[in-house]
């Protein structure tokens, strides 16, 4: 039997099937946790509390998912809304405005490209190197990268999730790729 899609599961959850919600939680809990921690610059403990809130909100509003977007896009929008609702009373949008601190509309300089930077490395070594470089990025850039590379959202969808102009998504991702190129280029082999 084929595994149920996210979209099938959220519809089942809307109809009251807790097991369907459970499957979605299982699929996405680490990804939502990571998104909350990065996008709102939260320590893991708080991000975990927020992640619970996100799934609570998903459950409560499952009936409003109309299937006009991917479930993932909807989920991360709910996550961002939950985070914002929380911060509205807590630190008054500090997390949202923090984006400006590192020049959200600026495109950073790109080092001269050298193809084959990661050639000749063992797969495990390469993975560790790349993960380390990602970890070192500013939180906001990591959050955008998560949505783009690992959740596979188009940049217009990311803009809709984060409620920022597409230019901001472009600059965040651009800066993430540029910084990664730089740090991978500087690696000691």
């Amino acid at each position: 039997m084929q595994e149920a899609s996210d979209e099938q599961l959220i519809k089942a959850a809307a109809a009251g099937e807790t097991a369907a919600l459970g499957t979605l939680v299982e699929r996405y809990k680490d990804r939502v946790l990571t998104f909350m921690a990065w996008h709102f610059s939260l320590p893991p403990e708080e991000a975990l509390d927020m992640t619970q809130e996100v799934f609570l909100a998903v459950w409560k509003s499952a009936g409003t998912f109309r299937g006009e977007s991917l479930f993932r896009t909807w989920l991360f929008s709910v996550a961002r809304n939950v985070g914002l609702g929380y911060f509205r009373h807590y630190v008054a949008k500090k997390a949202e405005s923090a984006g400006l601190l590192f020049g959200d509309e600026e495109f950073e300089n790109i080092p001269d490209g050298a193809a084959g930077l990661l050639e000749g490395l063992e797969a495990e070594e390469r993975r560790a190197l790349v993960r380390g470089a990602v970890q070192a990025l500013p939180d906001k850039l990591k959050a955008a990268l998560l949505l783009r590379e690992w959740e596979g959202l188009a940049y217009e969808e990311i803009a809709s999730v984060l409620q920022v102009p597409v230019g901001t998504v472009r600059s965040r991702l651009h800066n993430a790729y540029a910084r990664l190129l730089k740090s991978l280029g500087e690696k000691d082999l």
Partner: peptide, 10 residues
Amino acid sequence: ALKEAGAPLL
């Protein structure tokens, strides 16, 4: 390489 490495999820 990013895809291959996977997200460094918390």
